[in-house]
Structure formats: C-alpha cells, structure tokens
Design a protein around this nucleic acid. Structure first.
Lengths: 156, 156
DNA sequence: CCTCAACCTCAAGCGATGTTGAGGTCGAGG
DNA sequence: CCTCGACCTCAACATCGCTTGAGGTTGAGG
C-alpha cells in the first residue's frame, strides 16, 4: 500500500498518474501527452512509475481551464513556464499568472461581445448587409495587408 | 473580360472563386474545402469553373465569424443548413439564424465570464486552493459520471 | 495563335490534441 | 508463488481545418 495504489488520503504525499487523472479530470493518456509536451513533469519511482506532488493538481487544473476557453496548449505552456519549475510556486507567482490570464480572458470576452453585438446589428437588423459591417470585413484588419485591391465591397 | 477575371464591379453578377476569396478573406483552398464539406456550393461554367452568387459572400462571412469564435465547422454547417439552399434567404431566415447564434454567443460569453470570475476568486485570492473551487472541479459536472470515488479532493 | 494567370482535381501532408493498442513490468493481496 | 490491475513505452491511428503540390484546362489579352 505504501507505493502504488490505495493509500488512505491522510497518508498520501504524492499522486500516481491514475489519481491525478481522476482528480483533475484529464485522461491518463492526456497527462502523458502533457508531459511529452513539457506542460507537466513527474518524479519516477524505482519501478519507473510517475509520481506527482499535490501541486501538480493545480497545474493540471490550470491547463484544463485554459483548454476550456480555447487557449492553445503552447500558450498555456508559455504561461506555465513563468512558474518556477524547481520550487513550489509562491502566491506571487500565481498572482502574476492570474493577472496575465485575466487579461487574456478579458480580451476574449471583449471580442465575443463585439462579435455578438455586430452580429445582432448586422443580421438582426433589416439591412441584411454584411457588406460594410465590421464583422464581415474583419479580415481587413486581421489579414496580411495583402497585395492591391483592399476595397472589399463596393457594390451589393 | 466577361467571364473569368476583372469585370468592373457594376457589371458583375457572379463571383469567381478568386474574387470570393479576396472579398471574404478565406483562401481559395478553404473555399474548396468548405464546398467539399457542404457549407457552400457553386454553379459551374461550361469550362467547369466555379461561379458564386453575391449572396455567397454573406454565407462565407458567416462561416468566418463562427470560426473566429470557435464554433466547429460542423455546427456552422448545421446552422447554415437551416437556410434554404434553393432560394435567396429571406429576412426571416437570417433572423432565425441570427437568434440561434446569438444564443450560442451569449452562452460562450457567459462561460468565459464565469471562468474569469472563478479564476480571479480562486487564484487571485490568498487561498491558492483550487481544490474546492468550481473551476477546478468542473469535470465533476461535465464528466461522464464515472465509476466510484467522485469526491475529488478530501485533503489538501 | 501564343502566353499566362487563374482555374480545375486529386492526393498527400501538416499541426494540434489527443486516443488506442500491443507488448511488457510492478507490486500488493490471496 | 500466482494473479490482476495499474503502470510503462512506443507506434499508429483519429479528427479538425486546412495547405501544398502535381499535373492538366480555360480563356482573355497581345
């Protein structure tokens, strides 16, 4: 009982991959994948099995939160890389991360609201004209300012 | 000039794939892809080239809007399939579509705000405990109500 | 007529995000 | 000692949303 499976909670210092999976909600295969990608890491036992400190639970939670709102793993990794890998993150570390993610989230919310409002204006109204509206012409701002002819629509 | 390339705007009834691409901001290859997937369709000239009615611009715009906010193509297709394929969509058609997308957008906004607020509470605060918070335990609601042990965290 | 960009099809490839399966090890309980 | 579930690695496959390339046609200007 001391190493692999079902030690009582009050006695556990580390988590097995199965436990981390169950508690985080991520599949074991996904945890392996995250490890390959460098988002998480593990200690190995003498028998080559993974062991995670409890703090890894928070890290994985963070990954899944990011995923839920559509942040690519690479970006999540970039955020996590700000955290010290050796030591347990301090409150300051988490706060810094929290701040930058909040901005990311705010940005996404802002964008979605913009889309929603434009959408309602644009299609919900009577004009039925996507021609001049900010939604339809969005690639004008975003796009690689292409060659020539950027006048998207001149007649309907 | 009458068929393939650069007829003056005031004279064009249909768009070539290149024109649709330029005006919509979608790559030609993406338009082909959308066609294969059934999101758009085209008339063919005697020489087998695609020709699009102007209304296709709106359809493609819609596709791209959906993409921007992370709606999978299959879902976008489902929405577009509500539009009549034979005739030009009426105001009513667009309004129906608009309504359902607005709901989709509202839902996504709501979710993001929830995440942001939970996130701020959870990490921005001093507790540093994702253990009991709604964010970290999200898979509890979402997940396949798995076998046994759904008590995610009993000790920190 | 010749040229040349824009078009066509079909097949393969790509990056992200994993899952699945084969084949084997570890370790605790009976 | 034996069994059996949880673990290991590695490779292959899967889905989405395209892009790229090969190889060929179309059609308008010169």
């Amino acid at each position: 009982m001391s190493e692999a499976v079902a030690a009582p909670a009050w006695d556990q210092k580390e988590l097995t991959v199965g436990q981390l999976s169950e508690r985080s909600g991520a599949a074991v295969s996904a945890l392996h994948f995250y490890e390959r990608k460098g988002l998480i890491s593990s200690r190995r036992t003498s028998g080559n099995q993974r062991r995670y400190p409890r703090g890894m639970l928070r890290r994985v939670a963070l990954i899944r939160i990011g995923q839920r709102v559509g942040i690519p793993l690479a970006d999540i990794k970039a955020a996590l890389d700000q955290l010290p890998d050796g030591r347990t993150p301090t409150k300051k570390d988490w706060e810094r991360l929290s701040r930058s993610w909040r901005e990311e989230l705010d940005e996404r919310i802002r964008m979605l609201q913009q889309v929603r409002d434009d959408f309602t204006d644009c299609i919900g109204c009577g004009c039925l004209s996507l021609n001049r509206c900010s939604l339809a012409n969005r690639h004008d701002e975003l796009g690689k300012h292409g060659e020539g002819a950027r006048r998207l629509v001149e007649s309907a």
